[in-house]
Nucleic acid binder design. Sequence first.
DNA 1: ATAGTTAATTCAAACGTTTCAATAAACTTT
DNA 2: AAAGTTTATTGAAACGTTTGAATTAACTAT
Lengths: 322, 322
Amino acid sequence: MPTLKDVAKKANVSISTVSYVINGSKLISKGTREKVLQAARDLGYHPNGNAKNLKKNKSEIIGLFLSGFKGPFFNEMLEGIQNEVEKNGYEMVVCASADMHRLLKERYVGGAIILNYHIDNDLLHVLASEKYPFVVLDREIDNPHIEQILLPNKQGIEQSVDHLIQRGHRRIGFIAGGQQSFDGEKRLEGFQESMEQRGLVVSPKDIIRADFTEVSGLLTMKEYLKQEADYPTAFISANDEMAMGAIKAVQQKGMQVPNDIAFVGFDNIEIAKYFQPALSTVQVNQKEWGAVAAKMLFDKINKTDFNKQTSIPIEFIERESS
Amino acid sequence: MPTLKDVAKKANVSISTVSYVINGSKLISKGTREKVLQAARDLGYHPNGNAKNLKKNKSEIIGLFLSGFKGPFFNEMLEGIQNEVEKNGYEMVVCASADMHRLLKERYVGGAIILNYHIDNDLLHVLASEKYPFVVLDREIDNPHIEQILLPNKQGIEQSVDHLIQRGHRRIGFIAGGQQSFDGEKRLEGFQESMEQRGLVVSPKDIIRADFTEVSGLLTMKEYLKQEADYPTAFISANDEMAMGAIKAVQQKGMQVPNDIAFVGFDNIEIAKYFQPALSTVQVNQKEWGAVAAKMLFDKINKTDFNKQTSIPIEFIERESS
DNA sequence: ATAGTTAATTCAAACGTTTCAATAAACTTT
DNA sequence: AAAGTTTATTGAAACGTTTGAATTAACTAT
């Protein structure tokens, strides 16, 4: 790989001159500029990003750290982030490793958006600094260099509860996901609080736990239907995948959705509307979610302070399953 | 951010000693090792990846460059790659920029898998080298440092054609995508060749062009149905999204799928089986696709030569739409 | 002609690592 | 106790950039 040095030799100028040309300084005369650019082109020169970053002590790449690549859930959020990133002349990389997090630790990126429960708060506290800010999407953390964006989980569940109550449901169950998910637990809390506020009791055995996957929803619900004699007339699920799995379990038992049991999901993933029956759910505006996260991150990076918005629009969507 | 120097000072040893400790050299005595590690921990030291890469002239990150993040299409492929990458102790980053490709040019990664039509062959030829190998998934390119993996597009289409013929169809149309897609064009060619080989004529006007999105499929088919008086009894689409769009157009016109017109897609995206009617399609084993790509890349990086497999399993899946 | 100014170019140090070569310290041999 | 060997530690250069300061060249104004 040709370096500045090679280009310099070929163009018969100093390394600094080449550097200035490459970076578009206008101190350089037109003649030299041309000469250098030509040499660079001839050699197929491209700057070495690692050297650049090392010297400048910054990286114009921002990292998005996810727990995994499963599911169509994040595609829209990615778009929201990508747009902002491009506006700022940065690049975005998406990374989903479970253990090493080398990219984060070794500071290849200039900042990060984190939606990855494998990365713990301690690590974030150690790494975050004025020059290395983060935005976290799935947790609460108290650090001056880390911004958090919380989803309106409770409002979403509240709307679902109200919808079901209005439909005449009084005994409502809840399908929770794994406890490591911050958002998931907020949804569960939101459910319990909403029910209580509306004077409805929720029996502990109507709260069942799966792990956010469709298959876990199916299996857990199957188990539940086996044990219990009487069921709630409706379930709210902490996400759409589990709701879909649970619905299949109910149908396999020969019961009707929504007639025998109604279901409401959360997230409004893409297949939700194609599912049979089409799934009622709470839509989170994911593109906006991503955009807000990115804007906040750039505020930290650039030490500006324009974007204080932290609420993400949600909307209850009524379909056939409830 | 603390550096080796800071740790060295704190532990009262030289920088080299710290470096050796951090990298687990066994030349260092137990006592010093402990002392150094303690100091590193106290300071919250993490190595600087840019400095490391610069010095070692290599990066243990591999990059996956996509044209965009749209669609659930790649999730499985990502998994296939990620698995291999982890086996090799590397990290993977996914990147989908349309213009700069800085990550690729500036060599943040130690190798790349490319499925991005925004990146042109010229750039790849300039960048690729013994130390910087690529695997391309969506094109043919002749370069000793670039490996290519071609999808069995033609076989897939052939199976679709045979299926439709067996079902009694004789006049079959084709919905092509944008011409920039290598795989898309191969599918079109495969269609034309298969039809010809089987002695069936395909009229140019039964080949319509959209751009791979669902909405383009819908609009183009709508237009087609307006102009023509008589239609093929079946269409093969270069991907599932366009097939779904086209089916909607047909249904909106009051016709039945598959009775009036049958459809076969390609890719077997996740929603294909939930669609109404469930979509017949050609499944590409994407996880394997990703795994093979990653294996080949590591072969190049490690200069081993074990994985010569380049064929990706496909399978025709018959559902309700045909 | 000389000093003063501006424009163009170069020098050299630094960023945080790695690693070869050199040194120092601690043991073995004789 | 001298020479040799092993073990542990350090010195210093290098990777490819950037950038403030220094230098040189080319003009302007006196």
